[in-house]
């Protein structure tokens, strides 16, 4: 067997590909809905917290800042392990997918809050004054005037963060959630071949590349004409 053949059977074994395709498709679907749930939870919670922070209530802001700092400082894997393996000790069993959604969603929220907040603080003060001077309340000015401008500024860093954290659904493989990587590594241990891992990599590209392209289009559309 020459080098190329060896390479192909190690990484691109068609028989193994065919055999595990159904499992992999199920894994892809799991990854997609997990990522969607994480993004929905993370972005909405992050946006809500950033808006809340704009009101400048001291106590609330203390907790928001603590939350954002902790969420950004802790590796998600640590939180996942603590909740999944620790909480049953207290008689509380949280299903793996839910652990993943809660932890990754919360971590994304911590980052999203900071990103939205940075966007809000870079909206010029004059924009707020123009809104308030025309009789708009604080909340109306926030929603109608400040947020749309903040969101535009926040979009590029937010997209990067969303992608980075959605990919961390792969951490589900350590707590038995059968997403892409989990399926791949199970298949790898059964077959002793690296081919399932290649298949997993291809699956990730198929899932996340369109998302990357979509966000590029979104970014372009979102930028108002200057």
């Amino acid at each position: 067997m020459d080098g190329l053949d060896r390479f192909l059977t190690t990484f691109f074994n068609a028989r193994i590909f065919a055999r595990y395709l159904p499992d992999m498709l199920a894994g892809v679907w799991t990854t997609i809905w997990l990522a969607a749930a994480v993004i929905a939870l993370g972005l909405s919670l992050g946006l809500l917290l950033a808006c809340l922070r704009a009101y400048g209530w001291r106590l609330a802001n203390f907790f928001i800042i603590c939350f954002a700092d902790m969420g950004r400082a802790l590796p998600p894997l640590v939180l996942i392990l603590i909740i999944y393996f620790g909480l049953p000790g207290l008689g509380l069993r949280v299903p793996g997918p839910l652990v993943l959604i809660l932890v990754l969603g919360t971590v994304l929220a911590a980052f999203a809050e900071e990103i939205f907040w940075a966007g809000l603080t870079s909206v010029p003060k004059g924009q707020w004054e123009a809104g308030r001077a025309t009789g708009l309340g604080f909340t109306q000015t926030l929603v109608q005037i400040a947020l749309p401008q903040a969101a535009r500024l926040a979009l590029p860093p937010l997209v990067n963060r969303v992608l980075a954290i959605s990919k961390m659904t792969a951490l589900g493989s350590v707590i038995g959630v059968s997403e892409i990587l989990s399926v791949a590594s199970t298949a790898q241990s059964f077959t002793g071949s690296a081919a399932p891992l290649t298949m997993g990599a291809i699956a990730y590209v198929i899932v996340f590349l369109p998302l990357v392209v979509l966000t590029r289009l979104l970014e372009r559309r979102f930028a108002w004409k200057v």
């Binding site: 004059g126 004054e129 809104g131 001077a133 025309t134 009789g135 708009l136 309340g137 109306q140 109608q144």
Partner: peptide
């Protein structure tokens, strides 16, 4: 504040909406 119009040195038009939307916003919301 609806009874007191203000014009600023720096205009402060809302850059994310067109001209007529700028003039409509507070009429609708406030």
């Amino acid at each position: 504040r609806l009874e007191v119009g203000m014009v600023f040195q720096g205009f402060h038009l809302y850059p994310h909406m067109n001209v007529v939307a700028n003039v409509m916003l507070a009429q609708i919301k406030a």
